[in-house]
């Protein structure tokens, strides 16, 4: 278990979900004759002018608005993603420039498959908790790619979540503690300069996703002396609808505890944003005193768990920027042809 010497918490949060969706049945129509089950109902699709940087900027702006701090007060702007638009040239500098944080700020891009965003969050806890920084903005964002026809294509989605870490006394939710569990696991990877990842099918479940999440979550609850029933809400990384439901049940959480943070059925797997977006959706409705248990997962692989407690500040602060529900509500469905055009699946040159 890790705990900073100074108590820290979330001061502001912001989300971004693109307007466009493709139904999983539409993908299945192309590749499977519409037969068989699908892992989600729909997934979000970034518009042709969107990427990890643009989504991070919007989520970051909302986090700043909710926190009520100025961009210049941020000591770090960190972007976790597996779909940074440049291989070499940081997303963070562009995001920081757009937020108005430059030039006196630390920026960096983080990569750890789907838990790059929570890596940045943990590091931000360290920065603020050590007294090095007052405020750190940790963002998880992705425009994930799946090979056409692959199981991942049904779920690989786009979204962003930004968490502004600051002193606990200013927080809308304090972070009690965290722990990280990692183990070299080749469940899912993408070699440098390849467009699409490969994955180990059932190997991605046990021992990867389920095993790592169980280890991290159990360890943190044990060390804190808590049990699942002590939490109002729980949210897990959500590569599809079933995985977070299953791991929640394995750990002893009820469907009611995970319902509010479970966005995957409607928007798919937003990768680095997934667990954090679920947390933000919980912030949208949580009451002061509520407790939240968060567990991320990143292939390769590892898991970060966090225990949070919501404060009185939530009620007023969540009104300062669009709620997750507003982004979910503006859905516009596109067909596979438009999706293929926008996602660069057509040969143009």
């Amino acid at each position: 278990m890790m705990r900073p010497s100074k108590p820290v918490g979330i001061i502001g949060y912001g989300v971004y979900i693109p307007r466009y969706r493709i139904a999983a049945r539409e993908i299945s129509r192309i590749w499977a004759d519409g037969q068989g089950g699908v892992p989600v109902d729909a997934k979000s699709v970034p518009g042709p002018d969107e990427d990890t940087i643009t989504m991070s900027i919007e989520a970051g702006r909302s986090a700043l608005a909710r926190a009520g701090v100025s961009a210049a007060q941020l000591s770090a702007v960190w972007v976790g993603s597996e779909s940074h638009p440049y291989s070499v040239k940081p997303s963070g500098t562009i995001v920081a420039e757009a937020l108005g944080t430059t030039p006196w700020v630390s920026t960096a891009d983080w990569e750890f498959a789907c838990k790059a965003g929570s890596e940045a969050l943990t590091a931000g806890m360290g920065m603020v908790g050590s007294g090095m920084a007052e405020y750190v903005l940790a963002i998880g964002a992705d425009t994930a790619q799946g090979r056409p026809g692959d199981a991942l294509e049904y779920t690989a989605a786009a979204g962003a979540a930004a968490l502004l870490v600051g002193p606990a006394e200013q927080a809308l939710a304090s972070i009690e503690a965290t722990c990280s569990y990692v183990q070299d696991t080749p469940d899912f990877f993408r070699r440098a300069d390849r467009a699409y990842p490969v994955h180990g099918n059932r190997f991605t479940g046990e021992p990867a996703y389920f095993g790592q999440i169980r280890h991290a979550a159990t360890q943190l609850m044990n060390e804190l002396g808590t049990k699942p029933a002590d939490y109002t809400y729980a949210v897990f990384h959500q590569p599809n609808t079933r995985f977070p439901q299953t791991v929640g049940k394995q750990l002893g959480f009820s469907p009611e505890q995970i319902a509010q943070g479970l966005l995957a059925p409607k928007i798919g797997n937003t990768y680095s944003a997934a667990a954090l977006l679920g947390l933000c959706a919980i912030f949208d409705v949580a009451k002061p005193g509520d407790t939240i248990f968060v567990t991320s997962y990143g292939s390769g692989s590892g898991s970060d768990a966090y225990a949070l407690r919501v404060t009185d500040a939530i009620t007023e602060r969540r009104k300062r920027a669009p709620l997750t529900a507003a982004y979910l509500a503006r859905e516009k469905f596109v067909d596979y042809a438009v999706y293929a055009k926008w996602r660069g699946k057509l040969v143009m040159e």
Partner: peptide, 26 residues
Amino acid sequence: MVTRRLRDLGPDGLLVYGYKFRPQIS
């Protein structure tokens, strides 16, 4: 205002970001 990708100047070129506008979201 939202900040979006304005131009992709090709595989060896810059991604140009800048302002666009959209109907207010909420």
